[in-house]
Write a protein that binds this DNA or RNA. Structure first.
Length: 427
RNA sequence: GGAAGGGUGGCAGAGUGGUCGAAUGCACCAGUCUUGAAAACUGGCGCCCUUUUACGAGGGCCGUGAGUUCGAAUCUCACCCCUUCCGCCA
């Protein structure tokens, strides 16, 4: 959510930002409601003041009769006031975050910009296969049985491929919790952030609707799994339950940046993607993902995102997977984002780059509703800035490994850094 | 699932219808003292909204929402959460 004061003072900027982000909210109508609220509020508060004054002492009969009338007026105005507030809040929820100046303006993914390509695209002496072919041939992926048991877009991840998943988790933990390693990443990339290690977390995979709304992640609802008997949603990312971990709390500046890495299942209905990526495990309803989340001071949050991207790149470099970094344009980015940067990994079977990572700078858009604040050394309060990014979307990383490391004899090599975790060199 | 107890400021913990935004202690901040620190002493110290150049003024907030009342932290109802015991269970 944006600050209503900011909207009052910068209506044209907000309207333009809405256009770029393809959000339709009637800002003039919002400001009109806001004006109405501002006329009712003093009236309401004046009446309350009157009541409070008299209620300080025991009133006589006459005063009690008068108070009754005032009470009725107050009640009437309260209802009106609440209606206005609800209307305003509803509109406020729909207004996306103001984008960072570096974000390119564009209508859809055609406006995204590739910032850099890293790593050598592997050359094969044979026709490289797609991951689902390899998965089927080597009995590593079984979508057919999964479809019978759970439905389309589910999978059984089997054998050594399943083992590899745990190796990726161990590998990510070993880097993200290593202060010295993080310091090196920071130095190598000329970044100005502290090397504070990430705290590993296994978060809940269910979330209450109110919290989901406050995270600005409840929408699009059709993408979420909902369990009516308990009024909870399944998370679509560990971000969804990591972000509100400090809801209604004030953090001490001493603990900032506060970084978490969450390992969890992610559930997505994939509504509207029927017929897209139907084979294999690229797009499934349930997958494991390692996520980074951090709380930082406003002046450091952009650099924090740069750090997150640097960590993502480091992770992919250690796996020796070629990738490109893409800056997402206004029309293609998430509503809460001020700046979004994706990492796309080369998939030889498909002969193209596919999204494996994303990183979102939310500034104070989420923390305003979550009420996650930071108390500075001088005692002042400030909304925390929040960043969120993928460390490994495990399924897609496994795809990248399978396709990039496939050999002519049909085996798949294990990336060197993962071998110590799995105990085999190929499979 | 059953039973009981409970949710008050950063923490602990008073407060059962009116001068309570809330005692007290701890923590924290500033100062005195001290070479310095500690201790002691003095003072300060919640959040949000409206208004004001500022000083200030007003309103709201005692888990959440609704209700009773002239007036609610305090009474009623619903919901959420926590603790303990029993049951079940990875």
């Amino acid at each position: 959510m944006l600050d209503i004061k900011f909207i009052r003072e910068n209506p044209e900027l907000v309207k333009e930002n809405n256009r770029h982000k393809r959000a339709e909210v009637d800002i003039d109508q919002l400001l009109k409601l806001d004006e109405e609220r501002k006329t009712i509020q003093p009236e309401l508060e004046g009446l309350r003041n009157e009541r409070n004054k008299i209620s300080k002492t025991k009133p006589d009969e006459m005063e009690i009769a008068e108070m009754r009338k005032i009470g009725e007026k107050i009640k009437y105005l309260e209802v009106k006031f609440k209606e206005l507030e609800d209307g305003i809040t509803e509109m406020m929820y729909k207004i996306p975050n103001i984008v960072h100046p570096s974000t390119p303006v564009g209508p859809d993914e055609s406006g995204n910009q590739v910032l850099r390509k890293v790593g050598e695209i592997p050359k094969f002496s044979f026709q490289p296969k797609e991951h689902w072919e390899l998965g089927k041939e080597k009995d590593l992926i079984d979508n057919e049985r999964a479809a019978e048991i759970a439905g389309a877009r589910f999978t059984y991840l089997k054998g050594k491929l399943a083992v590899l998943q745990f190796a990726l988790i161990s590998h990510a933990i070993s880097i993200l919790t290593d202060e010295k390693y993080l310091a090196k990443i920071i130095k190598d990339n000329n970044l100005n952030v502290l090397p504070t290690p990430f705290i590993p977390i296994i978060p809940p995979v269910m979330i209450k609707p109110e919290v989901f709304q406050r995270m600005a992640r409840l929408e699009p609802k059709e993408e979420r799994y909902y369990i009516p008997s308990d009024d909870v949603y399944l998370i679509g990312s560990a971000e969804h339950t990591l972000g509100p971990i400090h809801m209604d709390e004030t953090l001490d500046e001493k603990t900032i940046p506060l970084r978490y890495m969450g390992v969890s299942l992610a559930f997505r209905r994939e509504a509207g993607s029927y017929g897209k990526d139907t084979k294999g495990i690229l797009r499934v309803h349930q997958f494991d993902k390692i996520e980074m989340e951090s709380f930082s001071l406003p002046e450091n949050s952009v650099e924090e995102q740069n750090f997150f991207v640097a960590v993502q790149e480091e992770l992919m470099k250690t796996l020796k997977l070629p990738y490109q970094i893409v800056q997402i344009c206004t029309g293609d980015m998430g509503g809460p984002d001020a700046r979004q940067i994706d990492l796309e990994t080369w998939m030889p079977g498909q002969n193209k780059y596919r999204e494996t990572h994303t990183s979102d700078l939310m500034t104070d858009y989420q923390s305003r509703r979550l009420k996650t604040k930071i108390r500075r050394k001088d005692g002042s309060l400030e909304l925390a800035h929040m960043n969120d990014a993928t460390a490994f979307a495990i399924g897609r990383t496994l795809i990248a490994i399978m396709e990039n490391y496939q050999q002519e004899d049909g085996t798949i090599l294990v990336p060197e850094v993962l071998r110590k975790y799995v105990g085999f060199e190929k499979f």
